[in-house]
């Protein structure tokens, strides 16, 4: 594998709609969001849509979040459903959102970054497309049943864009 395969050039966000995939590529299905945007970035999308690999950053994505009017986040979501289940929700749908503590294993995850952007008065309209992971073991490959879902996840993202 060549070094350049991991990354594609993305300018810093100025577009109105941002499709942001987040997760850790080194923890198998936890990186599904990044795998999805990698695929999306190879497709032809409307020019006002920017596709971004947010990787493992949390608060470091505030520049991206605050620069967007519309934000579609793709991330692994541990909701206890069958692996490969797909969720669609807004940050406001999470009832425990308010306490800011139990949201993520990380203290400062993507939802906290959205929340802080809101606090600054720059919150975009946000939809999260979540995927229930099967494995979060150390590894750079997706589980087969998660990989199979990628075309469907992409369809759902495209629905959001239309």
């Amino acid at each position: 594998m060549r070094a350049t395969n991991y990354h594609r050039a993305h300018p810093v966000s100025t577009a109105k709609t941002v499709v942001l995939g987040v997760g850790n590529l080194l923890l198998s299905d936890e990186g599904v969001g990044v795998h999805v945007v990698k695929r999306l970035s190879e497709m032809s999308l409307p020019s006002e849509v920017e596709v971004l690999d947010g990787g493992v950053a949390g608060l470091g994505l505030m520049n991206v979040i605050m620069g967007a009017d519309r934000l579609i986040v793709i991330d692994a979501v541990k909701g206890g459903a069958d692996p490969g289940s797909i969720y669609r929700f807004g940050p406001e749908d999470l009832t425990e959102y308010a306490d800011g503590v139990t949201l993520s294993v990380h203290e400062i995850g993507i939802l906290e970054a959205i929340r802080l952007s809101e606090f600054l008065g720059h919150a975009p309209r946000t939809t999260v497309i979540g995927i229930e992971p099967r494995s979060m073991d150390t590894g750079m490959e997706l589980s087969p049943e998660i990989r199979e879902k990628i075309p469907r996840i992409i369809e759902l993202v495209l629905d959001e864009l239309s």
């Binding site: 850790n24 991330d75 692994a76 979501v77 909701g79 206890g80 669609r88 425990e96 993520s104 979540g130």
Partner: peptide, 15 residues
């Protein structure tokens, strides 16, 4: 790890 972990089953209504 960076995933969203809502610590509640309620999230399942958004499947």
């Amino acid at each position: 790890i960076h995933l969203i972990d809502p610590k509640t089953n309620e999230i399942r209504k958004f499947i």
